[in-house]
């Protein structure tokens, strides 16, 4: 590991490697670029949403090395070597949806769809964490994802559906 971030040809930029939805990338970044802005504005992965940009809504939730985090508060340069899974990386290569995506459609767990990618990433991590066994625990551990359309009962139902079917955990 370098003692100092490697100096770059372009001033202020820092080169990192980041695996995004299974694909390794080398990126030269300005240190103030957040993971969210990197995904949305530089990599064109607009499925991850910006709902507040301050960790107050959860719309930007992604899986960072398998853990759910608010990508708006993560500086991209600090994620050197990490692996990120976004909503675009959940379905299988043949287009088969992740069980959580299917459950969200079947339970009508969204309306406008804007918080949905964050909700789904969060829900997948919730199952992986295995700290929620009943509706109270699901509700509490999904409270970092605000849905202004108010689809909460259906979100809980979608998660319960995947739990009941023993749906596969996060990729």
């Amino acid at each position: 590991m370098p003692t100092q971030a490697t100096p770059q040809a372009e001033p202020d930029r820092v080169t990192i490697t980041l695996t995004v939805n299974g694909k390794p990338r080398s990126l030269a970044l300005e240190p103030w670029t957040t993971l969210l802005d990197l995904l949305r504005e530089e990599l064109g992965l607009t499925g991850t949403k910006k709902g507040c940009d301050h960790g107050q809504c959860g719309a930007c939730t992604v899986l960072l090395d398998g853990r759910r985090v608010n990508s708006c508060l993560a500086l991209a340069v600090m994620q050197d070597g990490a692996s990120v899974t976004t909503i675009e990386g959940l379905a299988a290569a043949d287009g088969t949806l992740h069980p959580m995506q299917t459950a969200f459609i079947e339970q009508d767990a969204f309306q406008c769809g804007y918080c949905t990618p964050g909700q789904i990433c969060s829900a997948i991590a919730l199952l992986e964490e295995d700290h929620a066994q009943n509706p109270d625990e699901i509700r509490e551990l999904m409270s970092g994802n605000i849905c202004r359309c108010g689809a909460y009962p259906n979100i809980v139902a979608a998660i319960e559906q995947v739990m009941a079917s023993g749906g596969e955990p996060a990729p």
């Binding site: 607009t46 949403k49 909503i87 959940l90 379905a91 949806l97 459609i105 769809g113």
Partner: peptide
């Protein structure tokens, strides 16, 4: 189920700030 459901659960649905 919503006909736009797949677009919304896969991140394909584009909102105003997301058009290149």
């Amino acid at each position: 189920s919503r006909v736009d459901g797949r677009a919304k659960v896969t991140g394909e649905a584009k909102y105003a700030a997301e058009f290149p």
